[in-house]
Design a protein around this nucleic acid. Structure first.
Lengths: 254, 254
DNA sequence: AGCTTATGTGCAAATTCGTGCAGAAACAAG
DNA sequence: CTTGTTTCTGCACGAATTTGCACATAAGCT
């Protein structure tokens, strides 16, 4: 790999993850940490990143693009997205729900992975534009503005014609008794359809969703296969969910 | 092997792999690295590649994908997009095709305009997220990667259920005899369906499209209602199109 | 404080680069 | 056919760049 490409790669990873770690980069690229450190030093000298102990950060610490854009993804959501991306096996057909965590997930799908992604979120679809190995199927319908996903009869109909391996679902509440919940009735219906169309369902939930409940019930928690949370999620809140039949998966780091 | 052929080969490899390494090329072609380096130096002098230590990279670093192309919308496309946005009347239902010009168009839809936009382009949909007055209907289907629009049977079916006021269509060629053309057979079918689903069709064409023809015919030019071009488009090339029945609309400025 | 990890510097080995030069091939002119 | 010229190619050699290692130092954590 050419030096110039390596530096470009570092900047890409930085933009994708919001930070880079010298050690991880050296392992990923198969080079000594010295070389990585030199690169980081030079990139910092060019003002392309901000050097910190152990790695580097973006020059302008991640800020929301502008009104209406994707909300700032927290480190926790990035970690959950990355962990979810690792669950996708080559050749699988996966359903991916909308939301910021879902966008993080597809952003972290390994380059070179060949799979099919079905989504009703145009944001997720756009994010996959540059991912050559992924076949993308878009579910159409009326766009529900708040969360930017297709809903309505057309979407329901399209989803009903699919049998996927895994559904990666975002929710606004996971509660042992209230079940999986969300804030909009149309969205709830779509999410229910997505779950029905996949053999397994992995629920992606940042810690504030654990133990919370919103207005519209999608399904009891037992309808999902597993729950992917970050280490930040309190173990106490997870115990009743595990008892309800959910396999708890932990992402690394927060 | 001729020098010219060799240089062409280098450029091909560069385009295919995104980079070339002097040593690999010398082994592959059975020539000394000196010769390869000389070639690279000359190609760099012609601006056909970017010389780096160990090999060379494309002049436009990576980003040959859609996300990259979006950013380099020319002033002409912005002007056409703005003019197209002004053609939308309150309450109308409009079909908007994919492409960079279409993204510019929705970006310029007046805030406060209430209308319904139907599109098979997730990029267009995402762009409308922040536009409160616009109801967005997304056409689903398999995503055609090159231009990031939904194609295939599902998209055709969804479009066939719509009756819209105006269709804003992007093409890659507008030619009085060859007709409206595009570079992909699936895309051509979708565009044909879009035209059939709207009472009027406005073709958005930057000047390089005028008088050009691509492989797949959508319709004869007479099937469209009007052609929106910038003042840059040569009048001579427009005359036969006007004669073929197209109303020529001019965007302002550049 | 004590320990672990990261950092910077000097240094050596390997790779790559540029230039000068010579032989080979292509080509035009006589 | 021969000769002179031009172009292309490979080789040699010194310069420049890159990379990994060693070692002393600094930073962060318990």
């Amino acid at each position: 790999m050419l030096t110039r490409q390596r530096k470009q790669h570092i900047l890409s990873v930085l933009q994708r993850d919001g930070n880079v770690v010298a050690k991880s980069l050296s392992e990923e690229l198969g080079l000594s940490e010295d070389t990585i450190r030199r690169d980081l030093r030079e990139l910092a000298a060019e003002g392309l990143l901000q050097r910190v102990h152990g790695g580097a950060l973006p020059v302008a610490p991640a800020e929301a693009d502008f009104a209406g854009r994707l909300q700032l993804a927290t480190a926790e959501k990035v970690a959950i997205g990355r962990a979810a991306a690792r669950l996708v096996r080559p050749g699988q057909v996966v359903l991916i729900d909308g939301g910021t965590t879902a966008v993080q997930m597809v952003r972290h799908l390994p380059t070179g992975l060949r799979a099919t992604v079905v989504t009703h979120s145009p944001s997720v679809a756009v994010e996959l534009a540059g991912h050559a190995g992924i076949e993308v199927v878009l579910i159409g319908g009326r766009l529900f503005r708040h969360s930017m996903v297709a809903v309505g009869a057309a979407a329901m109909d399209a989803i009903s014609r699919i049998h996927a391996d895994t559904c990666f679902l975002g929710v606004t509440g996971v509660h042992a008794e209230a079940g999986l919940t969300t804030g909009d009735v149309e969205e709830a219906a779509i999410k229910r359809a997505l779950m029905a169309a996949a053999a397994e369902t992995v629920v992606l939930a940042s810690s504030e969703k654990i133990g919370a409940a919103s207005a519209w019930v999608i399904h009891p928690v037992s309808a999902a296969t597993s729950l992917l949370v970050s280490p930040e999620a309190p173990a106490a809140a997870l115990a009743p969910l595990r008892k309800a039949g959910l396999a708890i998966l932990r992402s690394d780091g927060g």
